[in-house]
Design a protein around this nucleic acid. Structure first.
Lengths: 134, 134
DNA sequence: CCTTGAACCTATATCTACTACAGGACGTAC
DNA sequence: GTACGTCCTGTAGTAGATATAGGTTCAAGG
């Protein structure tokens, strides 16, 4: 059973020390044990949880969703149904975002291609930005 | 030449009154004229600029990029080259984001399909989140 | 045992990009 | 001239961290 200082935990997870303390403060990560002198002592559970949080954030889950997932996944009892719902909801948002970005990508590509790159007063990019959306 | 109150400007652009004052404060939007009593009086230039800002933000340009675009596009002199560079950089980021989200979408879809939806202790979604990225 | 320096502690402030008050002044229509 | 909507400034709040200041603890070397 590993006993980790906050610095070791930070190195193992890639999460900033200040952010770990912040997560503890807002209740995202449980309060760890302390040494006699007051230094935090984390265990493998904290390591697992912090990795989980980091990965979920990287995958685009909102902090509130992460919290819910932690609440559900923690005791591992009322699992799949609710977890699944959050994941599906997230999936829908991801698909919507991909659509939006793809449209923007096409628009930007076309615009940049039009752009001569010279010092002309007319610029396709500026024009695009000045044109109100229909 | 239109003379707009802050409220009219807000209605015409869809930007909140407080946000307009905020844009003025941070120098994103030029300071307007004032009535004798101190009320702001905007003109068509402000309207154009604010619409520009709004549209650029909607298209995902970062505030700093918007500011640079305004600086470049304002006097319309050193135009295309730099504008083009910002647009291309933005385009690259958009493409990267699309790739990331597409991978996530595939991953989530596969995971949710695996998920029975019952009350089993093993949950594919939780598993996915607990598995560290290679 | 004692020193030294890295790591840690709390508390507060800062950041971005806004949004939301509170309490008062202005402007215009009747 | 008065009522009411709009506007003013200034301050505070939001999320989600990140950074700083000033002090304490831990661990390794002498």
């Amino acid at each position: 059973m590993g006993r980790l200082s906050i610095g070791e935990l930070a190195r193992k997870t890639g999460v900033h020390i200040e952010t770990i303390r912040y997560f503890e403060k807002i209740g995202m990560l449980g309060a760890p044990a302390r040494t006699a002198g007051g230094h935090r002592v984390f265990d493998d559970g904290h390591l697992r949880t912090l990795k989980f949080i980091k990965r979920a954030r990287e995958l685009g889950f909102a902090p509130k969703e992460v919290r819910t997932l932690l609440d559900l996944g923690g005791p591992a009892e009322a699992c799949c149904d609710e977890v699944r719902e959050i994941a599906i909801h997230h999936l829908e948002e991801v698909r919507r975002k991909i659509d939006d970005l793809t449209r923007l990508e096409r628009h930007l590509t076309a615009t940049v291609e039009q752009c001569s790159g010279g010092h002309v007063p007319d610029c396709a990019v500026i024009d695009m930005l000045e044109t109100a959306r229909p």
